[in-house]
């Protein structure tokens, strides 16, 4: 049974449609990265899943419980980290974690144990007595994370969990997410794409309220249309290599710039093809000297830009 099931979900705010008829599923044990440009509808979707907002139409279930009609049971199974990590300023960290743990049904020894364990995991062990009002952004983020997983929920929904953290902490959180992923299902949104490549089994890309892609990061990258780029640095004497290169079947565009005796630039070829061999043979034929010949490795960032950049 899937952990999250979203069917034709639509959310309209007064005047604007934030999410349009989206459908997707997340299976138990998956770590799914939820990507999209600003205003794409990530937070809106996550808020609906966390039963904070009601959908305008369509439905969503968490562990089989409808987030709207059976929301209490859905919320029991969910740890949610909101986008700006709202916290009560007057509380101390320990106090806050205990309070939230109690709200989520923990008590007694179990509660004390979980408070200790989550503080340890999120690097809050020494600051438990501190007032939340006096915490830096990164520490608030850690408190939010600790709070989200205090009741060991089946599902964690994290809206930009690493925003505001320092590089060490980002790495720690990434490790944390990966280790949590062994027992929990995680849906996380982020703008840091390397994080997604490092931690997620699957990526959902949303743009203007619509799901544009849903696949593993590797598959997305390999299917990228613009992935066929070859870097070349060549010495060709008086000849202009572009004239010859364009004659190779499959080459679409050549852009070389003169740099002393050398010419340096890129060749655009059809996706899923590799013309390095042909280029090399040509160079040997024409007695050119090659200093660099490499295929550009596309990244998730390229996929992201390709899918979401269009006509804005």
């Amino acid at each position: 049974m899937s952990m999250i099931k979203v069917e034709h979900l639509t959310k309209e705010y007064a005047g604007t449609v934030a999410v349009k008829e989206i459908s997707f599923e997340v299976d138990r044990g998956e770590i799914v990265g939820f990507l999209g440009p600003n205003g794409a509808g990530k937070s809106t979707t996550m808020r609906i899943l966390a039963s904070y907002l009601p959908p305008t139409s369509g439905r969503a279930t968490i562990a089989g419980f409808d987030v709207f009609t059976d929301s209490l049971r859905a919320r029991m199974r969910l740890g949610y980290l909101a986008e700006n990590v709202p916290l009560y300023h007057d509380m101390r960290i320990d106090e806050y974690l205990r309070y939230r743990g109690t709200l989520k049904g923990l008590a007694g020894k179990k509660l004390a144990m979980r408070v200790g364990a989550t503080k340890e995991l999120c690097g809050l062990r020494e600051v438990g007595r501190k007032k939340i009002a006096g915490l830096s952004k990164g520490f608030r983020q850690r408190v939010g994370l600790a709070e989200a997983m205090i009741h060991e929920p089946d599902l964690l929904i994290l809206d930009e969990p690493t925003i505001g953290l320092d590089p060490n902490q980002i790495r720690q959180v990434r490790e944390l997410i990966r280790s949590l992923g062994e027992r929990h299902t995680i849906l996380l949104s982020t703008h840091i794409l390397s994080e997604v490549e490092a931690t997620c089994n699957r990526v959902l890309i949303i743009n203007r309220g619509k799901i544009e892609a849903s696949d593993t990061p590797q598959n997305l990258v390999s299917q990228l249309r613009t992935s066929g780029l070859v870097n070349l640095e060549v010495k060709a004497g008086n000849e202009n290599p572009s004239d010859y290169l364009l004659k190779i079947p499959g080459v679409k565009d050549v852009q070389l710039e003169k740099d002393g005796l050398w010419r340096k630039g890129w060749i655009r070829i059809e996706a899923n093809s590799d013309l390095r061999e042909e280029i090399f043979t040509l160079a040997v034929e024409r007695k050119w000297v090659i200093r660099e010949l490499s295929k550009e490795r596309a990244t998730l960032e390229d996929v992201f830009v390709e899918l979401t950049h269009a006509e804005t």
Partner: peptide, 14 residues
């Protein structure tokens, strides 16, 4: 004002 209504209402409380 603080936005804590979001954390409050996403906990299992009616």
């Amino acid at each position: 004002k603080l936005g804590t209504v979001e954390t409050l209402m996403t906990a299992p409380v009616r």
